[in-house]
């Protein structure tokens, strides 16, 4: 198995708004991520970090450049193959949670497994229940998202992102809509997922506090990486284990 889970070279993304106007969102970004790293990505809005994350998540395609995820070259994939990679290799966590509203927590967590197929309903249920218990939501499996707090919804989303045992987690401002307490709980979960299960995490944030949970900080500005440095004093998870 290769040591680098992500290998990116000279990634460029140009949005053509009209014949004359085009925006260069990424101007040639290179980045390698080792298996098991916890990276935080920072930058002002418009810096290109969201575009970068969308490309990382196979939700968008780069104009040029090379992107290899877990040994798979992203440039040669069909739409269905990309959907499959999103399903099996990537776990998404969004700022706005993005849960299906008329569906219970349990079913939200099961959904990626349904799209994967080949798993019996009993197995689905078991795995989803285990993951919900792990994020501290045992007993709330049948609550619908609108009956859960923001922190709880985000934990459902984390459970959902983990159900297909992905190679990386992509978290786009996961604490952006949460209060401090919920933010800390969510970050504790990320920390333990990274430390204890060795899951690679790439997390976008604009809060320096949150970035301190990671072990490497990458800063974007104007479509380029302007800083890429390890974090010296990594923040200890305040309540490690409690929310698991």
């Amino acid at each position: 198995m290769e040591n680098n889970i992500i290998d990116i070279k000279d990634l460029v993304k140009i949005y053509r708004l009209s014949d004359e106007v085009s925006v260069r969102a990424l101007k040639g970004v290179s980045l390698t991520v080792r298996r098991g790293e916890f990276i935080s990505i920072m930058g002002a809005s418009g810096s290109g970090k969201s575009t970068f994350m969308n490309i990382l998540g196979f939700l968008d395609t780069p104009t040029s450049g090379k992107y290899i995820l877990d040994g798979i070259d992203g440039s040669s994939l069909s739409l269905n193959e990309k959907a499959e990679i999103r399903n099996k290799k990537i776990g998404f966590i969004f700022q706005g949670f993005n849960l299906l509203s008329r569906t219970s927590a349990l079913e939200n967590v099961e959904l990626p497994l349904m799209y994967k197929g080949g798993v019996s309903p009993q197995q689905m249920r078991e795995r989803a229940q285990k993951l919900l218990a792990m994020v501290g939501l045992a007993g709330r499996e049948h609550h619908h998202p609108n009956k859960l707090s923001g922190g709880e919804q985000q934990r459902v989303a984390i459970a959902r992102s983990l159900i297909n045992e992905p190679a990386i987690l992509l978290a786009d401002e996961p604490t952006g809509n949460l209060d401090t307490k919920s933010s800390n709980e969510v970050m504790d979960i990320f920390t333990s997922l990274n430390r204890e299960m060795g899951i690679t995490i790439i997390l976008v944030t604009h809060e320096p506090d949150i970035a301190e949970y990671s072990d490497r900080k990458v800063v974007f500005r104007d479509g380029l990486i302007i800083e890429d440095a390890p974090i010296s004093k990594r923040k200890k998870a305040a309540v490690t284990g409690k929310s698991r």
């Binding site: 939700l59 739409l79 269905n80 999103r86 959904l111 994967k116 959902r160």
Partner: peptide, 16 residues
């Protein structure tokens, strides 16, 4: 549309 986006993000294919 948003629901469709969520489903696609977590692995729904075109045919799904």
């Amino acid at each position: 549309t948003r629901e469709i986006g969520i489903r696609m993000a977590i692995g729904a294919k075109r045919n799904d």
